[in-house]
Amino acid sequence: MAGLDIFLQNVANGVLIGGVYALIGIGLTLVFGVMRTINFAHGDFVVLGMYSAVLFNALLGWDPYLSLLLAMPIGFFAGVIVERFILSRVIDAPPESALLATLGISLIIGNTILLTFGGEPRSVQVSYASSTLSIAGVNVSMVLLLAGIATVIMIGALYTLLNRTEVGRAIRGTAENRLGAELVGIDTRRIHSIVFGLGVMLAVMAGVTLIPLLFATPTNTGAVFTLKAFVVTVLGGLGNVGAAIAGGILLGVVEVLGASYFMSEYREAYGLIAFLLILLFRPEGLFGRTVKRV
């Protein structure tokens, strides 16, 4: 393989991995944009999605993509319930209260999974787990491609929801100015519930689409995904859903190229350094509008 071919292969992998990161990141971006809450449980919801796929596969023999049909609505309602009974009560308290609440939720999710499934890593074995598609000499992982397609569909749907519907208008209004939104008659409590529901739904979806490729453990994996979601979110711009995809892809490419051409043990650091640089020079994110700092 010539150097250029390898480079193209690496870029392709970076973009695809980035798609996965974007998928993990959108939910967090959405929740942060509207509720101004750093959701520490986000990664645990991703893990919850993975385990739901494991469960449906073990009980019903379903393919992960089929289990999306059930997992997504369940995720949405779980999110609504968590928001209604927990987060809505702390939304007016100091901002760190919500952060703490999500930490508590994260511990509860991880350890409930530990008690039900045990600590052993779980995964779902599908026939296409290692299949590749060869496009112009570049091998593309089937699972990543599917996850990428899911990301694009999801972002399209979300974009339509936010920009073309009444609920979307209300969500955007709440994100811009909660008090103002309330003054024009928007039930911001309801909007918060919907947004958190959507956030969890997206996290669960990310988990389900990733399980053919990865593995889930109850307490370790969640934190990793949360961290990735933070990075993606800041790279793209906190609260900017469309830019999350760009943030994710940027992170994927930076990590993969860093690991391919420099020291692989610092892989995580390449993304974090990019994250810091963006925070410092463009705190509104690469693609965010220039707004005043929060």
């Binding site: 690496n10 992998n13 991995i17 992982s141 490729l213 990865l214 370790n220 994996t221 934190a223 990793v224 961290l227 990590e255 993969v256 190229l257 690991a259 391919s260 692989s264 892989r267 995580e268």
Partner: peptide, 8 residues
């Protein structure tokens, strides 16, 4: 926590 080993 790394999940993508393709570069290596």
């Amino acid at each position: 926590g790394v999940t993508d080993f393709r570069p290596i």
